[in-house]
Structures are given as C-alpha cells and as structure tokens.
C-alpha cells in the first residue's frame, strides 16, 4: 500500500556563483572580507501541497527546470525538504539517473548485486532475481566484463533490468525510456506497463504528453516549483499545449 502526502514542501538549493566557498573564505568572512562569491538561492520547490492515495497514477509535466525532477528526488528521499513535511509510505522504486552509480571496475554480475542490495535486497531474495535480470537485459556474456567497457545503451539495459526487478509500492519514473535501441524500448515499455499495474502508486515525469495521457489517472503541470494546474490528464495536457502554442502563434 502506498501513500504520499506533501504539506507546504519547500526545497531550496544554495549555490555559489562561481565555485564552492573555501575554508579560508569561510573563516575570514566574518572578520573583514566581504564575499565576492555570493550565495544564490534557487527555490526549486515552492510550497508544494500534494496528496496521492493508493491506486493513483500521477503524471508531471512542465518545462525544463520547472522542478519536476527535484520533486521526484524529494519524493524518493534523496533531497530532504528544506521546510514542510513529507510523508511517504510504502516501498519505493525509483527510475531516475539509473545509469549512474555503477562500479566501473566490477563486472555486470557484481553490479547486479550492488544495485540489488542498494534497493534493499538480501542475497537470498536476489539469487532468484539474478537470472531474471540477466535474461531481461539480454547482455549475455557481456555480464562477465567490467561495466566500464559498456556502451551507454548497454548500461541503460542493465540498469533498467535491475531497477525494475523489485516489486515496489511506489514507482517514481523520470524519462527513462528515451534511451536504448528500438527493440529494447518496446520491451521496456511493456515491462513498465506491468509494473504500473502491480505498483499501487506511480509518479511519472515525462515530456511525452501521450504517455502521460495513456498511463496516468491524474496530472499536474509545474512551473517554477509550483503546481500550476492539477486535474484530469487530458485537461491538464490540453492547457499545457495551449500555453506552448500561444507564444508560437505570436511569432508566426
């Protein structure tokens, strides 16, 4: 059973204009130096309120930099909210940044282990799944060589196969299907459909408006870290498309 409840959630990144603050600067700041490197606060999520109950499939759309990925990472627990409360109940499976975090020197089989354990598997539960993962990613003997020799596509195949081998309550997805060859994309889409059926709650971040309409029961349109519109997918997508079409019409 999955449940997500966000109350007035804010996430603010404090970035430096140039690089990080150095120890020297930190120590001297209070004494006599005025900083040449001011902090820029980026309000990635702005008073976000959202409740998702069992069975809901949420599609998140919006421009680049609207805070969609930050929201997903906050839901996954990677970014703690700067203020507000985040309640997430249920086992999470996150499909974002899936091709990072591999140990390049280790071979495919070992990386299946690391990733599996990272997702909370035990040697016992993973043993059953290893064969299944190997079969799904179709990498065959490549699993015996270190992953640093893998191509980007192969890495995504492996990552996707591992990430989707769990049975989550909550599925968090960020544009994973745009990579890999045609055959794999089709296969991956099938697997995604199965997972969406099995998991009790899903959040899908996508620029593919068709898949949002196809898979989701609810959609939100985000802009500057806020929810601009929340409702039935078709209505939200139509409104979003209209907003994109308008400036284009002016130019034409």
């Amino acid at each position: 059973m999955g449940r997500i409840e966000l109350k007035d959630v804010n996430v603010t990144f404090s970035l430096r204009k140039t690089t990080k603050v150095t120890l020297k600067e930190y120590l001297l700041k209070g004494l006599f130096l005025t900083t040449v490197n001011p902090v820029v606060a980026i309000h990635a999520l702005n008073n976000l309120n959202l409740t998702l109950n069992d069975g809901e499939r949420l599609g998140v759309i919006g421009h680049n930099g609207a805070g969609k990925t930050t929201m997903l990472k906050m839901l996954a627990g990677v970014y703690p909210p700067t203020s507000g409360s985040r309640i997430v109940e249920g086992r999470i499976c996150s499909l974002f940044d899936i091709s990072v975090g591999f140990e390049g020197e280790a071979n495919g089989w070992d990386n299946i282990n690391y990733r599996g354990y990272l997702q909370g598997e035990t040697p016992k539960s993973l043993k059953k799944k290893r064969g299944e993962i190997a079969e799904f990613c179709e990498l065959g003997d490549f699993l015996n060589i270190p992953v640093r020799y893998y191509s980007a596509g192969m890495l995504v195949r492996l990552a996707f196969a591992i990430a989707t081998a769990t049975e989550p309550d909550i599925l968090l997805v960020d544009e994973v299907l745009s990579v890999g060859d045609m055959a794999f994309v089709t296969k991956a889409k099938d697997r995604m459909r199965q997972m969406m059926k099995k998991s009790s709650l899903m959040v899908l971040v996508s620029h593919d408006l068709n898949s949002v309409q196809e898979f989701c029961t609810r959609a939100v349109w985000m802009e500057h870290g806020r929810v601009l519109l929340d409702g039935e997918p078709r209505a939200v997508v139509t409104a979003y498309q209209a907003s994109i079409a308008q400036p284009a019409a002016v130019v034409a």
Binding site: E103, E105, A106, D110, N113, Y114, Y117, L118, G120, E121, T122, P123
Partner: peptide
Amino acid sequence: WTFRYFWLSLVKMDLVTRYRR
C-alpha cells in the same frame, strides 16, 4: 545494518579491484 549486504559487497569489491591485473 539493513543495508549490510550493500556495503559489505562494496568492501569486497574495493579489495578485489585494488589488486586487479
């Protein structure tokens, strides 16, 4: 403790890769 398999397997890998080749 829950994630012991994760870090233990990484420790093992560190040891193996350190002297690989």
